[in-house]
Design a binder for these strands. Structure first.
Ligand SMILES: [Zn+2]
Ligand SMILES: [Zn+2]
Ligand SMILES: [Zn+2]
Ligand SMILES: [Zn+2]
Lengths: 156, 156
DNA sequence: ACCTGAAATGAGAATGATTGCCATTTTAAA
DNA sequence: TTTAAAATGGCAATCATTCTCATTTCAGGT
């Protein structure tokens, strides 16, 4: 369930865990220990994490399992894969689970990715405009992705 | 120079060519035949092109030169590298040259990328909102990137 | 608590886009 | 024309990601 309006607190770990179990079950996948550790790692990250960052935070996850299980989790709608201009991907918990539609600030110098949210009014304006553009081009809109490229505090 | 307000016609090939020469000169690079062919190929593409698409349209461009010269052209600000969820990059002429700030419709099924433009009013609203978010996070905003993900006409 | 077949794991090999290397060719200026 | 620097093109190397397969874990039935 969505949190009450105005409540920006994160869904509790336990609730997220239950939701993950449901999502995995829906695609006939088990919620194994390795997958639980991945979800935990992503919950703790401040922004989307790279494979290396995940490896670093949890020594017990072999690389091949990280890749395979992130693919499974993405298929189940538990995580989202994020591609920037760096040559490796990043992963974060799906918005469905965090209940926060958000966007990314990307530092073009060091590659760090930070989450941020837009005002609801702006989001709505945007969605309308995108729906119009999609219609003109014969596209069926599913989602949008908005990144701000710039320099982070440390790279000015 | 930017075209007159309301004029959405493309900058002529000759003008673009001159501008490319200037941009390359600014970073001490020559405007060679191979680089001219790349610019021509990108001008003809309906959207951002992959390396393979460029190879296909111009048989006289060896792959290693395509990669090397696209990197040079990107460095000079002539082309923009676009990364989607496919595992290969796409390139298009920089907005500086086409004089059209635009965004992308990306088909999540077949990967095709199509350009579209947003209403100026929406762009301004967006820029304001992004500037605010950037300030809060200590970022210096440079540019934004907005994609609509969905299904193209052929993949519905 | 045992079976038993299916799913998951982990170590390493294979893949494939991209980058690096270097001998040869082209360019621009003297 | 000479000459040094820049560019080229074929191919090797890199490296994130995917694949393979032998072993382990799991769930369900007994
Ligand atoms: Zn930075
Ligand atoms: Zn995020
Ligand atoms: Zn499509
Ligand atoms: Zn474009």
């Amino acid at each position: 369930m969505a949190p009450a309006a105005g409540n920006v607190a994160h869904m509790s770990e336990a609730v997220i865990d239950d939701e993950v179990a449901v999502l995995l079950d829906a695609v006939d996948q088990r919620y194994t220990t390795g997958r639980r550790r991945l979800v935990a790692a992503l919950q703790e990250g401040v922004g989307p994490l790279t494979i290396n960052e995940i490896s670093a935070t949890d020594e017990n996850l072999p690389q091949s399992s990280i890749y395979r299980n992130l693919a499974v989790l993405e298929e189940a709608g538990v995580v989202t894969r994020i591609v920037t201009n760096d040559d490796f991907a990043r992963y974060e918990l799906a918005e469905k689970l965090t209940a926060h539609h958000h966007h990314h600030l990307i530092c073009t110098a060091c590659g760090i990715v930070v989450d941020f949210e837009l005002d609801g009014r702006v989001e709505r304006t945007l969605d309308q405009a995108l729906a119009g553009a999609a219609k003109e081009a014969g596209f069926t809109p599913m989602d949008h992705r908005l990144d701000l490229l710039g320099l982070c505090r440390d790279c000015q």
